[in-house]
Amino acid sequence: MVQITFKKNPVTLPGNEVKVGDQAPDFTVLANDLSPVTLQETAGKVRLISVVPSLDTGVCSDQTKRFSEEAASLGDNVEVLAVSADLPFAQKRWTEINGVNSITALSDHRDLSFGEAYGVTMKELRLLARSIFVVDANDRVAYVEYVPEGTDHPDYDKAIQAVKELTN
């Protein structure tokens, strides 16, 4: 079971821990136009899924911008998804203001479907825990990072390397 803190306070993560080698759990989140999006929408591609508590905070904003910058160099067979519990309208505003257009921002606000499937819902806060998942073209999990302290940055280099290993 994954144990993390948020601002140094322990939080509860209900659900199952996702591990390397697992079949990637499906989920249903919302696009900025409120249409449902599932893992299968990107079937056949490598997916880098960047999970943040809220795009409107410093570390989350930095994380999303960093993966957006990296996305351009990863090739057409890679989808970079940013998942948070922010409302779709807030995500759309944030991506437009920040010029982030090489990733897809997705909202787990309605059902916490992603959070429950990947074991990243912080029960006490109803936010998603900072984490990274890389899923291969066959829907197998190739890389996982549950960031131990929710206000810390993930290991960007390891996540990008995991994607590159799947696309070379």
Rank of each mutant, 00 (worst) to 15 (best):
D108T: 09
L34G: 00
V37E: 01
A137P: 02
I160H: 04
E124T: 05
V20M: 06
K45V: 00
F27V: 03
Y156L: 06
L13S: 02
K92D: 13
G115P: 01
A90D: 08
L125C: 05
T12N: 12
F27Y: 08
S50F: 01
N32E: 14
L55Q: 12
D22I: 07
L30Y: 04
E149M: 04
I4N: 04
V46Y: 07
S50P: 03
D56M: 08
F27A: 02
K8V: 00
Y156E: 10
E96L: 13
A72T: 14
E70A: 15
F67Q: 07
Q40I: 00
L34A: 05
I103V: 15
I103Q: 09
P25I: 05
L39E: 03
S102P: 00
V147I: 13
P148F: 08
I132R: 06
T28S: 06
F27K: 02
T95E: 12
A129S: 15
Y143V: 04
N101Y: 11
F6K: 00
D152S: 14
L125S: 10
I103W: 08
L13C: 04
P88A: 09
N138D: 15
E149T: 03
L112Q: 10
A159H: 09
V59P: 02
M122A: 14
V163F: 11
K65L: 13
V144Q: 11
G75Q: 11
P154N: 04
A43K: 15
R93K: 14
L125Y: 13
A31G: 06
S54P: 03
M1V: 12
M1W: 01
R66D: 04
N77A: 05
E145F: 08
V59Q: 03
S35F: 04
V163A: 13
L81A: 00
T5S: 09
S107W: 11
Y143W: 07
E96K: 14
T42N: 08
T121L: 15
A31N: 14
L106M: 07
T12D: 12
V144C: 10
Q3W: 01
P14H: 12
A82G: 12
L74Y: 08
A159L: 09
V11E: 02
S68R: 10
F89L: 15
R47I: 04
G15M: 03
N77W: 00
R130N: 12
E145D: 06
S102E: 15
